[in-house]
Amino acid sequence: MNRKRISLRQELPLLVWLVFVWGALWQNFSPGNLLFGALIAVLVARIFYLPPVELGGRFNVLRAVPFALIFLGKVVAASFQVLYLAVVRGPNVVSAIVAVPLRSHSDLLVTATGHVISLIPGSLVVEVDRSTSTLYIHGINVRNAEDAAKLRKEVRDTEAGLIRIMGTKDELSALTQEIAA
C-alpha cells in the first residue's frame, strides 16, 4: 500500500471522537471499555481509510465555548423566527438569493460555515462554488438591498468566528489585518 501515511497527531481528533461515540453507545465510560474502543477506533481508521480532513492545526477553546453558546441561542431564535413568519406573513413572505464570497479557501471552513449558516435565522445554503469559495444563500424575509447586506455581514461574521476558532495562522493574521484596516 503506497498511500501517504497520516501522522497520529492529525488523526487524533477523529480517534477521540470515535472513542467517545463508542463509550456513549455502550453508555459505559469505564477505562477497560474505553481502551477496547480505542483499539477498535485505530483498526477502523486503518482499514476504512478516508482522505484526512485538513485541519488548521490549532483550536481555540476559549473562543469555541462562547461561539457554541451564541450558536445555540441563534438556533432557538431561528425556530421562533420561522414560526413567527409562518403564522404572520405566511404566503406573502419575500426572499432573496445572495452571493457571499468567503475569505477562506479551506474545505473544512467553508463546510463548517455552511452548516452554521444553515442553522441560524433566515438563511440556507443553495449552492457552493468551491473554486472561488462563494456561498449562494437563500435568505428568507429579505425584502431589499439593506436586508441582503445584513445577511451578508452575518455570514462573514460567522466565518470570522470560525477562523478565530480553528483557522490556520495565515487566515487568522489576514483576518486581523482586515479588521485593523
Binding site: 425556530s79 420561522v82 413568519l85 413572505v93 426572499s95 428568507i140
Partner: peptide, 29 residues
C-alpha cells in the same frame, strides 16, 4: 416546534421558504 414546522410547510408559498420551515424547528425540537 413540530407544529410550527407543519404550519410553515402549509403556509409558505415556495419550496425554498418551506425548507426553512422544515429544517430549523426540527433541530430545536
Amino acid at each position: 416546534m413540530s407544529l410550527g414546522a407543519a404550519i410553515g410547510l402549509l403556509r409558505f408559498p415556495d419550496l425554498m421558504s418551506r425548507m426553512h420551515a422544515a429544517t430549523k424547528p426540527q433541530v430545536l425540537g
